[in-house]
Amino acid sequence: MPDKTGSERLAVRKTYKLFIGGAFPRSESGRSYVVTDAKDRFVANASRASRKDARDAVSAARKAFPGWSGRTAYNRGQILYRVAEMLEGRRDQFVAELRQTGLSKSQAAAEADAAVDRWVWYAGWADKITAVAGSANPVSGPFFNFSTPEPTGVVAVVAPDSPLLGLVSVVAPVIVSGNTAVVVASEPAPLPAITLAEVLATSDLPGGVVNVLTGHRAELAPWLADHMDVNAVDLTGAAPGDVPDLEERAAGNLKRVLRPDGAAWTAEPGTARLTAFLETKTVWHPVGV
């Protein structure tokens, strides 16, 4: 393409890959699928992840879980703020990718801003959720009795089609409390998810805490819902017809399930998504010991 000086410059096109364990591998299957813009024009080839990529992503998430959940809530909050800083720095790229999905310039800018704000909002919850969701319980006996929320483990997230705000709104509440995530990105608009992965890879988030798969949801979601080493599934982005089957599969090892609720992504999020992936640990401690 001729630039301002009129000389020919070779286009440097980007290869969109998966994000597993902090690395950017291609799908082990070697497959890809075509991503088009709102007017059906070719935008890019995205990796089409296979069940084995999903398996690898779950292993990576499991490996990252003890380290990530063992960090102090304060430290996790700081890392999420750092992610927000990096998101802000990539704002132009996100706006360009959102415009390809059919948003106008101002809509795309508003969505990118809302996504950063949403991430910051969830980051702030890192060291507050314990105080809100936990409690010191009065008991009839000489004991201190505490209930504290603990992360549930590896969470498989089927992300919604809102390519950035929706994605951020499902990923941030999962990881802020110490869970690790395997995210199946939006099928028609996976590019912002890969850009988000690049942000995560460069912002002190340990590898494996978030793993991003692009590809066909109907192909990947059943394997994740079946997987015995996954502790919870967020079905927000699953096709309504697939939800009952996925719930049935998830019952195989009693996974926590978050059903799609259809709420608008711009609405006030509340703490429901945070608490959906927490479990309560209650400790009895004798008074005076």
């Binding site: 499991r62 079946d226 997987h227 080493d229 195989g252």
Partner: peptide
């Protein structure tokens, strides 16, 4: 079983 297992088991 056709289902990925986990180390918990």
């Amino acid at each position: 079983t056709g289902v990925y297992s986990g180390p918990d088991y």
